[in-house]
Nucleic acid binder design. Structure first.
Length: 228
DNA sequence: CTTCCGATATACT
DNA sequence: GTATATCGGAAGG
């Protein structure tokens, strides 16, 4: 019989951990640690907020309209990193899930810097401890991740970009709710976060494009979610 | 807490 | 050619 043993905290996350549907993996990724080592030093972030994107079935996913040069990494093996550029100035980082051929991924939305605080603060131009990685683009800045990190393997022991297992999170403090910034499929509760953690980003619903003369200024949300 | 708006790769018509 | 984007910083209340 196969006993599924939890990976001890600090140990590299096995690729098999990510070879499952993103919405199942995502809550279990909370508390895990992303670590990036550069010549400047190492920064590590403990994840407190993530979002699952489920391939071609998910209207919110970058792979919803099929394979393109940008989303190609999502179709590859689990454990690889999908980095994309958005809003003309930001990078966001995902971990690819499921076996090659499917296009699931998990967006790393926020976390707590647990190593390399000085370096992260420097990269984030003096932001407070709480704000260092509070938001997906902030997280990539704190970690020193950019475009050329797209397609790197975070489950390779010799990699300078790694995912490590974290201490177990009590299921009752893991909440789920709608995703941020997603126009289509916004009602699907595939955002997961650690309840009450100060590094979880402020929820902002997708803002529909405001046409001149069509002042639909719908906004706001909340941090309320469903316990899982 | 809120609103405003930048600056551009990417995908689609 | 044009619309949109898995957003953040600054400034106002």
């Amino acid at each position: 019989m196969t006993t599924t043993r939890r990976t001890p905290p600090g140990e590299l996350l096995p690729r098999s951990f990510l070879a499952a549907p993103s919405m199942e993996v995502a809550p279990r990724l909370l508390g895990c640690v992303i670590e990036h080592e550069t010549t400047q030093g190492t920064v590590a972030v403990r994840l407190t907020e993530v979002e699952a994107y489920h391939g071609e079935l998910d209207p919110g996913s970058h792979a919803f309209r099929g394979r393109t040069p940008r989303n190609a990494v999502m179709y590859g093996d689990p454990g690889f990193v999908y980095v994309y550029f958005t809003y003309g100035m930001h990078y966001c980082m995902n971990l690819v899930c499921e076996p090659a051929g499917t296009a699931s991924a998990i967006l790393l939305r926020a976390g707590e810097v647990v190593e390399g605080i000085d370096l992260a603060t420097d990269r984030r131009r003096g932001a407070s401890l709480r704000e260092l990685a509070r938001g997906p683009a902030r997280l990539t800045v704190a970690l020193g991740i950019a475009r050329d990190d797209n397609g790197r393997d975070a489950c390779d022991p010799s990699s300078t970009l790694r995912v490590r297992a974290g201490a177990p999170i009590a299921p009752n403090v893991i909440l789920a709710g709608p995703r941020v910034g997603v126009a289509a499929g916004a009602d699907t509760p595939w955002r997961f976060w650690i309840d009450g953690d100060p590094t979880v980003s402020a929820y902002r619903r997708h803002v529909p494009k405001r046409r001149p003369g069509n002042p639909s200024t719908s906004r706001r949300g909340g941090t309320e979610g469903f316990s899982s």
